[in-house]
Each structure stands twice: as structure tokens, then as C-alpha cells.
Design a protein around this nucleic acid. Structure first.
Lengths: 284, 284
DNA sequence: TATTATTACGTTAGGCGTAAAGATT
DNA sequence: AATCTTTACGCCTAACGTAATAATA
């Protein structure tokens, strides 16, 4: 029977060109490789090398054998990864979300419903989330709209409404509502890790500049100490009472008022059923 | 690294359902299999079994691992066979022919031109020969017509003309030529191993019966001792002067006058170039 | 009691490295 | 001389089987 270790030595020899170099690369002795090559010829039952007194090279069959060996090792690697990934999928719920807010509700529910499971979530843009669904990398997805594909299970879950926050002294402070086109051109403070909101802002307000703050403390400091407008939503928790000094003005564009949908394959529907739809009015 | 031997034990366990039976089937001891299964879990890095005190079964991941193991073992088997087949193809010229006569000229030429090569020939029907070409099972093919596929190299090689042989007393003996439709209904003596001629006779003369003789001696005896018509061609050698007592009448149908074509892949053209086209007039 | 998995243990075969030989540049 | 492959040789690990253990049906 073939031995993957021996095949790896064969491949290394093919790459290095000489048994000595291959031995060096694999941290084994030259005699070991010599013996392995002889043994491989026995196993294959054919001659794989042209031998001179002081040199050894692959013959045509040997080259073919190397090609097969490469395929086989890669197949073996795939097998390992497939099994590990499958096992992981049995013990983890992976969630790909387009925005952070839905996760604040999804993660606690799932971790109490499935205390033995690892729950992994990540923010991605919409195309990447669709890929995650297709490849079954994630069992649960959160998208800002209905999923196009009807072989997924879809359900609306949560609404999020964007407002802009300005100091009382700001030009817009007296408005009871605004639109993106009215906001376009102003510069904004923005947090990082806000999912699809980042790209939406850039699309809807192409004339604006966005000062993205990676560090939360620095963001809060800037909100306090500057008059730059920023954003909030009905879901945001203002623990620091940062925005009490500011005026919150709803953005009326439909793009600014999002319904999040839970999406999953039918085999993962149990996860979804744990998550009750959240009525925005319930949120204090 | 995965060990194909260990994977085979895993598969056997999956088939047998118990470690003891698997051990028995593989002619190894139970402890060996126990250890192998433990080691496989180490290598995969995941749990593959549900263990009771007195029983062990595959869990979901284990079932997945068995599936992967099966694929891998079959890939390994394929790799072995591919390399061996390739090696064989370097040392043998395989010829698939639709009729025996061309081989009488092809085989001697090839074996003198390639004395170190094994030359393997076999008679097959036309579809099987085309498959042999496609799968590269054969390097050289002999077909009774042009090859349809233009990615093969084609060359006319030899002509063979069918005649019917009847005793002088036979109804047809005075004819200078005949057609299949005139022969249809007569019963004939036929040799076996005559390639496509056999099927052609049955197609062209559906009302006839053919007494196929596997044994050459018996065939010759029947030719001598019966008045049943038989066939010969311009290429047949009548070493026994079997047919001197008989009248040979050419069959004029185009199907009875065949041009054999050599067909091969471009990479095997060297073999074909050794074979000079044979002018039927040269044949004594 | 018979069957099954696992652990313990002793033995051995086979694989590895060191050393040496033979050969080439 | 330096480099490379192959053979020879001795060590030592690691894999196997036997025997024992524990548990089940």
C-alpha cells in the first residue's frame, strides 16, 4: 500500500533535484531517502528513476508518479480539512452579519439556547455573507434585505433606523428630519466595525468625508469635544450619555431604515427558531 | 500525516460494525485496531466515535471521516494504476484492429522496428476500437474506414477483397462475380477471430446461417469434406492448398472490398511511420 | 458464559542514523 | 577535495500480539 510519507519524500526529491537536498529539507538522513525511493519502486512495481553511479533522476514514469503523488497528498489534506470542518460545524454556530446591532440580540439568545456550542460571529459585506451561506461556512446570516435565493429560509427580525446627531448649534439642529442628499457634503465622525452602514454612508453621501475612529474612547472624546455630526440609531445604547447634548434627527431615506433578515439553510432552521422577532417598540 | 493503512482499518470497522470483526477480517489483533482508532482521532484532531464500556460506534464526524477515507483510498488505488498503466504504455505498443489480416503486416514491422517493446494486439469491433483510442488504451488502431475524428492521424494502409469459395459442383461455380444479395440465404463455413467480417456477413446476408469453427483443424476438415461455401480474400494464405479444389468468386459489393486505415494519436505517429503502405499488387 | 473494548506488558521487527564505500566532478 | 548515492551495520523505537481487565447482553 502507498505511504503518504514516502510520497512526500518523492515530491520533495522532485522539487530539490537531489536526494541530499531533499533529506536536508525534510530533516532526515540521505540513506533514509534512498531506501524510500527504492521502496516506492517496489510498491509501484515499476522503475521510477534513471540511476548513474553518482546521480539519480526521475524517468518519465517517475514524473508521472510525482504528479499522482501531488494529487494524492492534496486529496489527503483536503480530507483532513473536510473532517475537521465538519466536526467544527457540529460544535459551533457561525453567524455572518452585515451589521453589529442584530448580533446584540442574536448572540445572547443563541448562547443560552445552546450553551455547549461555540458561537462565532463576524461582520462582513453582503456579497461575502452570501458566499458564506453558499459554502456553508456560516449556519446563520443576517442581511439588510430579503435573500434573493429561495432555497434559503428567510425571516424579518429587527428594524434599525438611522438618525444623525448634531450639536444644538449646528445648522441642521432645528430640522425634524433630514435626507442623505441634505447631509451630503458634511463631514462625519464614524465608528469602525459598523458593517454595511460604512459603505452605505459613502454611497449615499459621496461628497462627505468620514473620520473613522477605530478606538471607542477616542470616538467618544471627539463626539464630546467637537461639533462634528455623528450617527446613532434606535438600537444604539448611549451608556455614556454622550448624545444628551446633541439633537437626534431621523434620516428619512428608505436606505436609512433597515429591516434585518435572518437567513439560513433549512438544516439550520433550529437555530433560527430560537430567535424571536424583535419589535422595535419594545426596546427601551 | 494520514496513514492509508489506518484509514483502511477505519473503513473495515465501518463495514463490520465491531472492532473484533474488523480485526478478524484484516487478520490483525483487536488491540491493534483499538489503538489505530485512537490514533486516527489524534491525527484528525477530532472525536470520531461514541464509546460505551463495551461498544464503540461511529459518531457523525466519524461517518464523515469514513466517507473521506473511502475517497482517499480509491484515489490512492487510482494513482497506483495510473502510474503502472503509464509505465506499461512506455514499454508496450497496443494495437486494436478490426480484422486479423492487417496485423499480419503490422506486427512484424513493429517488432523489428521496436525490438525492446512488447507488442499487444487484439481484435475488437469498431466502437470498442474507438473507445480504445479515446481512452488511449491503444496507441495504434486499424479501422475499415476513415476515422471520423480529425484529431486522430489517419492513413490508408491496405486493401482486402472478399471472395466466396465454392466447389466446382456448386450452383454459383460458373459465376465470375457475385453480390451479397445473391449469396444471401446460402449457409457458410466461417472461421472465428475474423474481426468485423463476422458481423458484416450477418448484416449483409441476414437469411444465411454461419457455421463458425473455433478450431482451425476442424474448419479445414469441413472445407475439404463438405460442399459448404466459405470465404477467402486476396490477403489470405492458403498454406494447405485447401482452396485449390474450389472456385474463388469475387464479391463485388463495396462493403466486401475494404481499405484498412491506420489511426493513432499524434503522439504515437512514430509507430505509424514505421508501417509502409502495402500495395495489394505486391502480394504474391 | 460469551462477546467486546480497552489496558498492560513483553517481544520483536523494521526503520532510522552513523559510518563507510564507491564514484563522479 | 567535495559532493552524491548506495551499502553495511547497530541501535532503538514503535508497533504488534498475548494476556489480563472490565463490562455488557
Amino acid at each position: 500500500m502507498l505511504d503518504l510519507n514516502e510520497l512526500e519524500q518523492l515530491i520533495t526529491f522532485a522539487e530539490m533535484g537531489t536526494l541530499s537536498l531533499a533529506a536536508e529539507k525534510l530533516h532526515i538522513s540521505q540513506p533514509t531517502i534512498t531506501r524510500t525511493m527504492q521502496h516506492l519502486e517496489e510498491v509501484f512495481g515499476v522503475s521510477l528513476f534513471e540511476r548513474g553511479k553518482n546521480k539519480i533522476t526521475l524517468n518519465d514514469t517517475g514524473i508521472k508518479a510525482v504528479e499522482q503523488a501531488r494529487q494524492l497528498l492534496s486529496a489527503a489534506d483536503n480530507a483532513l480539512r473536510t473532517v475537521r470542518a465538519f466536526d467544527k460545524s457540529l460544535h459551533t454556530i457561525t453567524i455572518s452579519s452585515c451589521a453589529p446591532a442584530p448580533l446584540w440580540y442574536v448572540l445572547p439568545s443563541l448562547s443560552t439556547a445552546y450553551p455547549d456550542m461555540t458561537i462565532a460571529s463576524s461582520l462582513k459585506n453582503v456579497p461575502a455573507i452570501c458566499e458564506d451561506l453558499d459554502s456553508e461556512f456560516c449556519q446563520l446570516a443576517i442581511l439588510p434585505h430579503n435573500s434573493q435565493y429561495n432555497h434559503y429560509v428567510n425571516t424579518p427580525f429587527l428594524k434599525e433606523n438611522l438618525s444623525v446627531c448634531v450639536p444644538a448649534s449646528h445648522d441642521l439642529a432645528k430640522r425634524s428630519s433630514v435626507t442623505f442628499s441634505e447631509l451630503n457634503g458634511f463631514n462625519f465622525l464614524l465608528k469602525s466595525e459598523i458593517g454595511f452602514w460604512d459603505e452605505m454612508c459613502r454611497v449615499q453621501m459621496p461628497a462627505s468625508r468620514f473620520l473613522v475612529q477605530t478606538n471607542l474612547f477616542e470616538f467618544e472624546e471627539l463626539v464630546r469635544e467637537s461639533s462634528l455630526p455623528c450617527f446613532t440609531t434606535n438600537l444604539a445604547k448611549d451608556d455614556q450619555n454622550l448624545l444628551t447634548d446633541r439633537i437626534q434627527i431621523p434620516v428619512t431615506d428608505s436606505e436609512a431604515n433597515v429591516t434585518y433578515y435572518l437567513v439560513c439553510h433549512s438544516q439550520s432552521i433550529a437555530y433560527m427558531n430560537v430567535l424571536k422577532r424583535i419589535d422595535t417598540n419594545d426596546i427601551v
